[in-house]
Simulated scan of single mutants.
Amino acid sequence: MSQPGPVAYKILTGEQLQQLLSAGTFQGAPIDLADGYIHMSTAGQTQETLEKHFAGQSDLHIAAVDLTRLGDAVKWEVSRGGALFPHIYAELPLSAVLAHGPVAYDESGDLALPAA
């Protein structure tokens, strides 16, 4: 199966974003550490991921990540609904983050992703 694209998105809590910005790297959220990889979503998957796994949480942010900067650490694997999701089998370096911003929605109610 082909890879959907070079940019993927990571939903982070405010604390996790601060860790990434201050340390220059992000080791993963508790679920990432438990599963052995950092869960990512494509542009088309991010809103569903947010609604399914982060419902009711506040102070959430989205980081746009250039997967090409991560090389072989990125694996596209079948997950929710049989779709391919990008997983990072390494820490996420700040150098791969193209943009980040708070979770926000446009006037039509769609998730507004940070401009990558």
Rank of each mutant, 00 (worst) to 15 (best):
D59M: 08
P4A: 07
D66G: 09
A63T: 05
S22W: 10
T68D: 13
G71W: 06
S58I: 09
S58P: 01
V78S: 07
I31F: 15
Q45K: 15
T49Q: 14
L92S: 06
D66W: 11
A96K: 01
W76H: 15
E91C: 15
A8E: 04
A99L: 11
I88F: 02
L60E: 03
V97F: 06
S79L: 07
P4V: 00
I88A: 06
S22C: 08
G81D: 08
G56R: 12
H53Q: 11
M40R: 05
V97H: 06
S79H: 12
K10Q: 10
A83Y: 07
I88S: 02
G82D: 03
G24Y: 12
L113Y: 07
K52W: 10
H39C: 13
R80K: 02
I88C: 10
D32F: 07
L98A: 01
L113M: 10
D59Y: 14
A43P: 11
T46Q: 03
L12S: 14
D66Y: 07
A34S: 13
P4S: 02
L70I: 09
V103A: 02
H39T: 12
P6H: 13
A8F: 14
A99H: 10
S41W: 05
A112V: 07
S79G: 07
T46C: 06
G5M: 04
K52P: 06
W76T: 06
S22M: 12
I31Y: 13
D32P: 05
L111I: 06
A8N: 05
A34I: 03
L17P: 01
G82V: 06
Q3E: 14
I31H: 15
L67A: 08
W76G: 07
S95M: 00
A83H: 03
T46A: 14
F26E: 01
L98T: 00
L50P: 04
A104H: 02
S58Q: 10
Y9K: 14
L50I: 13
G81V: 02
Q47E: 15
Y9N: 12
K52G: 05
A96H: 05
K75P: 01
L20C: 12
L67E: 01
G109C: 00
E107K: 15
L33W: 13
K52Q: 10
T68E: 13
G109W: 09
S79Q: 03
G5R: 06
L98I: 08
M40T: 12
Y37H: 15
G14Y: 14
T42K: 04
T25Q: 09
L50F: 11
G71C: 10
T46G: 02
H87C: 08
A55L: 10
A116M: 05
M1A: 13
S79N: 04
A104G: 08
G101T: 13
P102R: 15
